[in-house]
Design a protein around this nucleic acid. Structure first.
Lengths: 195, 195
DNA sequence: CATTCTAGATTGAACATTCATTCTATTGCG
DNA sequence: CGCAATAGAATGAATGTTCAATCTAGAATG
């Protein structure tokens, strides 16, 4: 039973991995099921053995994305100095090569703006993410012996906005990365996190 | 001749206004030409009298968007205190009702991430926008008697990231608007613009 | 003035293509 | 052998675009 479940799950992931690639390149509605099938190394008809329809695949991709973001936030708890790790990571994120996930992220947001089911997942995922980030920041400050913030949620919101804006910058201005910009970013985060 | 040009332009704008509405609701590739025609009050075939194909309509919408952003930046020059106007406007933007243009903005970015022609327009528009914003900030500081910034471009980049992130927040967390968040936003912008 | 003509504007059905999904036949495995 | 996994052609619907037919408005004519 476990082996069969594993195999089923592996096949689902095979589809989803392929779907993520196709969706990233072509968008949710530009990528056809035929393309997904090719990329997954599976027949078109067989995809429907694992997913009810294309919309179910889209929903699964969105949920996966939410889970990844939450896992990333979780990993911050392992850092000795959480605040420094956040600041460091922001700069590192900015230096990432542009072939990462902003295309898929933007597609998810575009879909959320017009598909109520996706919007629900995105909103719930966001609620959990910002709660977790707020806790993480509070925890990091406590470790540093800094006083609790009265405006913790507000600062969290602005920090998230900044991170999300940086992602968009990678589409609009892919060459934005330089030392000065990273320095301003880190200084801004320092103000938001450590003062 | 002028009247005919005007009529042609009016008809083009009729199509583009309708297209913007349909694209906002359904996305570039979810909205059909039949829907655009209905919304424009024009026959499907006649749209092709004004635009070569659907892609030309998409391109025109993107260019329109770029022009609007640049016009908005231009209007800042009329302010007595440019820096304060920027800070004030940021808070006002945040308070906007969520039925504004983030859906179309995100769709444009999604398209730019996978359509090279749109990407060129978006990149060029961004280059002009950030140049103009940097000049505006420099001008605002000069009016205040503040010293020029060595890291002007870097600060501009982070400010743009923040504005763009706020737009995404309207999709992910539509209820984010409260006084505390606006206060943090304005404080952050104060640091970036006025110190 | 009424009628006719002409050219441009306009329509929407037709067309060819593509799509998401279904379903029958085949394959693989225990 | 029987059942589950799998393939891919078939299906019906939807799409972007074309094009022949029709409409409209203004000029020309008697």
């Amino acid at each position: 039973m476990t082996t069969e479940q594993d195999r089923g799950e592996a096949r689902c992931n095979q589809v989803l991995d392929a779907a993520a690639t196709c969706f990233r390149q072509r968008g949710f509605h530009g990528a056809s099921m035929a393309e997904l099938a090719r990329a997954a190394g599976m027949s078109v008809g067989h995809i429907y053995h694992y997913f009810e329809n294309k919309e179910a695949i889209i929903a699964a991709i969105v949920e996966r994305d939410v889970a990844e973001i939450l896992a990333l936030l979780d990993s911050l708890h392992d850092e000795e100095d959480i605040l420094q790790a956040l600041i460091r990571e922001a700069g590192n994120e900015m230096e990432e090569s542009p072939c990462s996930d902003e295309a898929l992220q933007v597609e998810i947001l575009a879909e959320a703006s017009r598909n109520p089911k996706v919007a629900v997942t995105v909103h719930e995922g966001d609620r959990r993410a910002r709660t977790r980030l707020a806790e993480t920041i509070a925890s990091g400050r406590a470790r540093r012996g800094l006083p609790p913030l009265a405006d913790l949620e507000a600062r969290t919101e602005i920090i998230i906005a900044l991170f999300e804006g940086l992602m968009l910058r990678r589409i609009r201005h892919p060459k934005a990365v330089d030392d000065a910009t990273i320095a301003v970013l880190r200084s801004t985060l320092h103000t938001l996190l450590e003062t």
